[in-house]
Design a protein around this nucleic acid. Structure first.
Lengths: 228, 228
DNA sequence: CGGCAGTTTGACATTTTTCAACTCCTGTGG
DNA sequence: CCACAGGAGTTGAAAAATGTCAAACTGCCG
């Protein structure tokens, strides 16, 4: 199966030999929207790389409450921490849209790492990104005192996932909103109803525009200053 | 300066050659309690390893609110993610007690990594632990609906830092409580007063015993079942 | 002894959650 | 083609919980 440009983006930091090997391991597969890829608590035996589409990563409590930690896109890797520590997955991953996902079995990846020591570098970088993201989530949950602050910073984070370049300008940022109010709630630690009310308020105040699936933050900097 | 047993614990996963080099880089220094080691937002130019003592890692909001993400002890490494991505520190670190800390300048560490590819392994492991910990914190903040649940799981996490072996038994776990109610509050996302009230309640209900700085969770499993 | 940091407790205000009802939209099956 | 069910979003009203403010207490250290 053809290896996508997305996984190549990662691979491009490898030497040509490592790159060739990287393309030869694992298999790519297509998934529909709303399929579950990995389940929290299961032994980590595969590493996944998003080639195309979007995947949400969540943690669940015993009572069924959810925490949405991350929306992964093309080029993102997950399952790495659990694989590396040889434990169970800490998060559940679920496709948000149709996706192409490359899956690498644990054994193959371990081999690959042993043959190419440079891979650990890329591993560490990917882990660093996951870490940074988790810290951001924790910050949002703990340091934002108001519900509006939590939701606003969640939206700003989402906008930056799609639009890495134009971060921190005051130009309108628009992005595809593939999350339901419930998802947004579990991202910001709020109830579905609160999200609904706050979005209405943001629209009323002109911070947010929504046309179908597309959400636009009209002046991100003001929004951040006002609520975060 | 003598390298402590703590940093040797990490080094012991290295080959003998790497081990010798590891001992030769960086310098150890002693710190008093309540000194600041690294500051959030500053360029990451040093890697720190705790040899002895305890260090708290926090993130601050613009308004001065704090989030305590981790209490690092002997053998723990921090600053790694920021160093690796060549950005600024994401957290502020502050000694809780007198500490011995080994500090490795960025350049030396990068050299060390280049000479010994195996180091990336250890790096990845340490990053994995930091990641897992951040996820745990986010979980606590988002998935625990009640204040009691947040505090209880924070206390359980703290007890496990000191007492890694006896985790998940129902035997009383006791540990040195070096955090103020305010610290506990910023760990669980609660106000100082709420922490005070809840601890009183936990004592009343017999879940917690406190004698000076020593805190004992009398039946951790029940506590977890009851509140978490 | 005074002062300070940490803790405790009460009263109150505020916020968000919860519960409930209703609308809108979409896909499915008769 | 229509009816219907289910998921998602909206809105209101009430309840519950925690944060905030205020005041007093404790223990420690100079």
């Amino acid at each position: 199966m053809k290896t996508s440009t997305a996984s190549s983006q990662h691979a491009c930091t490898f030497s040509s030999v490592a790159l060739r090997d990287f393309h030869s391991i694992g298999i790519s597969r297509h998934y529909e929207a709303h399929e579950t890829l990995l389940r929290e608590g299961f032994p980590a035996n595969h590493l996944l790389i998003v080639c195309s589409g979007r995947v949400k990563l969540t943690a669940a409590s015993a009572e069924g409450r959810l925490l949405l930690l991350r929306v992964a896109g093309p080029g993102d890797i997950f399952g790495l921490a659990a694989l590396h520590e040889h434990t169970v997955y800490r998060l559940t991953s679920e496709t948000l849209s149709p996706c192409t996902i490359k899956s690498i079995p644990r054994d193959e990846f371990v081999c690959f790492m042993e043959v190419h020591p440079e891979v650990a570098r890329v591993t560490a970088l990917a882990l660093g990104r996951e870490y940074t993201n988790a810290v951001l989530t924790a910050r949002r949950l703990a340091l934002q005192t108001t519900a509006a602050g939590k939701l606003a910073s969640a939206l700003l984070d989402l906008s930056r996932v799609d639009n890495l370049d134009s971060a921190h300008t005051n130009l309108p940022i628009s992005f595809l909103m593939q999350l339901t109010h419930e998802d947004l709630g579990s991202m910001a630690g709020l109830s579905r109803e609160t999200v609904s009310r706050l979005l209405a308020r943001f629209r009323r105040e002109g911070h947010v525009l929504q046309i179908h699936d597309r959400m636009t933050l009209t002046h991100p900097i003001q929004m951040e200053a006002r609520y975060c």
